[in-house]
Amino acid sequence: GLRDLRDRIESVKNTQKITEAMKLVAAAKVRRAQEAVVGARPFSETLVEVLYNINEQLQTDDIDVPLTKVRPVKKVALVVVTGDRGLCGGFNNYLIKKAEARIRDLKALGIDYTIISVGKKGNSYFIRRPYIPVDKFLEGSNLPTAKDAQAIADDVFSLFVSEEVDKVELLYTKFVSLVKSEPVIHTLLPLSPKGEICDINGNCVDAANDEFFRLTTKEGKLTVERDIIRTKTTDFSPILQFEQDPVQILDALLPLYLNSQILRALQESLASELAARMSAMSSATDNATELKKNLSRVYNRQRQAKITGEILEIVAGADALV
């Protein structure tokens, strides 16, 4: 009846207010996320510059650093970065599907695996599936900091150095633009200048669309917008002396690089989540507007029909009296 319709219009209106508010909140947070990325830039730029310099000087040396050691892969650790909240379209689902596909691939290759889950949505997914081995559950945060990245890096580092796993892959959602983001697999460890890792039998265990780790300047840019702002760097003195063994210096630098890679992944994942929520809420608001319009039309039509019916009855009644 008419009252039901009125109630429905009212509830659609309320829902629309909520989705509208969520959209605005997400939009504001995207800006904060971008600021965080900008804040991380001086560090990453300097780091990449230094790495590049040192790498050049070490080109000819045979470096043996634990983090770059390529071993035959028997077990892989997958770091799965999801969001903490829902209502962001397919964001979490896409990433979890990607993780599942990777797990299937690894199983097919007969390689053992373990999961490090970051973010509430991923945590609850893996808790519901006890047959998937999970090494650690970590909570995501509203704004990823170096501490969060450090927690992951510590875990990954000890897993790798203690030779419990031979390879670490990071699964996160890469931020392309406000309307586009895609889940990607990124090899964290071993840090190899070349990328592809094959075992003794020549079986390569890298995912087909893995983003390879490269110690080059262009990999180091940490911009969400992916704009290329290279600050002009002063030429550094070529007579730079190494206080320690170059190997030791690399040993100190690579964990920093590892951290900044993880931090970037966390930041990108957050930016993608917020962008996904923004567009999901935006279309929800549009849908609510559309629904409200249609419902009001039906409501008005019914009301008019009722009034017309009443008038007809009165006119017919008056006619009968004549």
């Binding site: 230094v50 170096a146 002063t234 550094f236 730079l240 630098l253 920093l256 951290n259």
Partner: peptide, 16 residues
């Protein structure tokens, strides 16, 4: 972390 010194510029890169 790591530090680089030269030209009277000290750059210290650290995790925290």
């Amino acid at each position: 972390g790591f530090a680089r010194i030269g030209n009277n510029e000290i750059t210290v890169l650290v995790n925290d």
